[in-house]
Structures are given as structure tokens and as C-alpha cells.
């Protein structure tokens, strides 16, 4: 019986969580559609959450592009098709690794920051203070972070894709002696521009996941410092799991037939 209790409680909690997240997203979209966006706060958040993440995105995508090139160059060379390495690197960077990698890195850095900041505001009564002033925490805090991430994550993804391809090109040139020209030609042939746009669409969805999950976890914080820690961990873990799930679903929908 205890097992059924646990399963039942878990199911109810999961639905309550999903309902809460959906409600927060709907509320946020309502403010965005009505153009009730705090511009200064949004720009500040774009800098804090987006611009300050460029270095970590650059480093992770550079080395990922390099390792893909290294592995594929060795394999492709053994089949005598090393001229296709550029295509493989560009293809995987634009469709999967660029959006995924930048989203996971930003979820770890920014999702955690959103949950921790909002969680601290809950435990220090700042959220109640907003409500007591007749102000909506969703408009004041969630919308600026959501809009900032939806703008900044695709830009970081573009950076990630370019850097991965450049890193891959450099390794292909040094390790497999593939010329830059051949690499670029292969990349252009393998990667239609629409695929780059689809990859960027994915990053918009990931940005929504990171911002809304981070904000929801933060706003649900209970207890003191321990509660903030729990919310922060929860935000990162949940965001990353959802990013992986949505990545599969979006890849199936967007690239399933190509």
C-alpha cells in the first residue's frame, strides 16, 4: 500500500508541477503579448544571463567541434572520404550540438542563477513585498528573464555553431590535412540554411524551458538557505532533462524526414 501511496503522491506532484509551470508560462506570455515588458530590467538581464555566458559557451563549443572533427576525420579517412568531414562537423553543430550544448551550459549557469535569485527573494519576503505593493512578480521578475533568454540563447547558439565549425576546421586541417576550402565546401553542401534556422528555433524553446523552470523553482522556494539550494539544484536538473526530451521531440518533428 505504501508503494501505491508514493506513486499516487508522485503523480499528483508531477501534475501540480506541470500545471504550475504552464500557468507561469501563460501569465508571462500574457504580459509579453500586451507589451508590458520592463525594458531596462530586460536589458540588464540580457547582459547578466546572456552576454556573461559567452566565454563558457565559446570554450565548450570550441572543444566539442574540435573533438567531432578529430573523431570523424579518423573514421572518414579510413573510408577515403575525408573531404566530408566539414559536412559532418557543420551538420552536427548546427542541428544538434550548437543548440543543445549552449542550452545545457546556460541551464547550468543561468537557470541556477534565476532560481537562486528568486528563491532568495522569496525567503527574504521580497516577493511578498512586490505583491503587497500591488505588483506582479511575473511581470517584474519572470518576463524580463524570459525575454532576455529568448533573445540571447539563439545568439549564443550562433556563436557556438560558428566556433564549433572553426575549431573543427582547424583540427581537420592540422590532423587530417583537409584544406580549409574543402572543409567549407563540404559544410555548405551538407548544411542547408533552413537547418540552421531550425536549430535556432530549438534554442528558443530551450530558452523558454530554462527561464520558466528556473523562475518556477525559485518562486516555489520554501525554507531558508537550504530551500534556495534545493530550488537551484532542482532548476538545473529539471531544465537539463527537459532540454534533452524536447531536443529529441524537436529533432523528430523538424528533421525527421531529412
Amino acid at each position: 500500500m505504501k508503494v501505491f501511496d508514493e506513486v499516487g503522491r508522485g503523480t499528483i506532484n508531477a501534475f501540480a508541477y506541470a500545471g504550475g509551470v504552464a500557468e507561469l508560462l501563460t501569465d508571462s506570455l500574457r504580459f509579453i503579448v500586451a507589451l508590458r515588458i520592463r525594458v531596462r530590467e530586460t536589458l540588464d538581464q540580457a547582459y547578466l544571463l546572456g552576454v556573461q555566458s559567452w566565454a563558457i559557451v565559446l570554450l565548450t563549443s570550441l572543444f566539442t567541434g574540435m573533438v567531432i572533427s578529430l573523431e570523424s576525420a579518423a573514421q572518414f579517412a579510413s573510408y577515403g572520404v575525408s573531404n566530408l568531414v566539414g559536412g559532418a562537423v557543420a551538420f552536427s553543430a548546427a542541428r544538434e550540438l550548437g543548440p543543445m550544448l549552449s542550452a545545457v551550459v546556460v541551464a547550468g549557469r543561468t537557470g541556477a542563477a534565476i532560481a537562486a535569485e528568486l528563491g532568495s527573494m522569496v525567503v527574504t519576503e521580497q516577493i511578498e513585498a512586490l505583491l503587497s505593493l500591488g505588483l506582479s512578480p511575473t511581470r517584474m521578475l519572470v518576463v524580463p528573464r524570459l525575454v532576455a533568454l529568448v533573445v540571447m540563447l539563439p545568439l549564443l547558439t550562433v556563436l557556438a555553431v560558428i566556433v564549433s565549425i572553426l575549431g573543427g576546421m582547424w583540427v581537420a586541417n592540422i590532423y587530417a590535412h583537409i584544406s580549409t576550402e574543402s572543409f567549407i565546401t563540404s559544410a555548405r553542401q551538407a548544411l542547408p540554411f533552413e537547418d540552421v534556422l531550425r536549430g535556432l528555433f530549438k534554442s528558443i524553446v530551450f530558452a523558454v524551458i530554462i527561464a520558466i523552470i528556473g523562475a518556477y523553482q525559485g518562486l516555489q522556494t520554501r525554507g531558508g538557505a537550504a530551500g534556495v539550494g534545493k530550488s537551484t539544484t532542482g532548476a538545473v536538473v529539471t531544465s537539463i532533462i527537459l532540454i534533452f526530451i524536447f531536443n529529441f521531440a524537436l529533432s523528430y518533428i523538424l528533421f525527421g524526414h531529412s
Binding site: 527573494m121 527574504t124 519576503e125 521580497q126 511578498e128 513585498a129 505583491l131 503587497s132 505593493l133 500591488g134 505588483l135
Partner: peptide, 27 residues
């Protein structure tokens, strides 16, 4: 209704990212 009722919190609940002037000016 809340616009007609002031609330002074136990730990003040001022917004740390705003100056005192900005905090008071917010409403």
C-alpha cells in the same frame, strides 16, 4: 486594494538590486 494598504515587513524586504530611492519610488 493593496495599493491602499502599506506593508512594512519584518526584515524590510527592500529590493537589494535597487537603491533606497528606487525602492521607495517603485510603487
Amino acid at each position: 486594494l493593496r495599493g491602499t494598504i502599506g506593508f512594512a515587513f519584518q526584515f524590510s524586504a527592500l529590493f537589494d538590486s535597487l537603491t533606497i530611492g528606487e525602492n521607495v519610488a517603485l510603487p
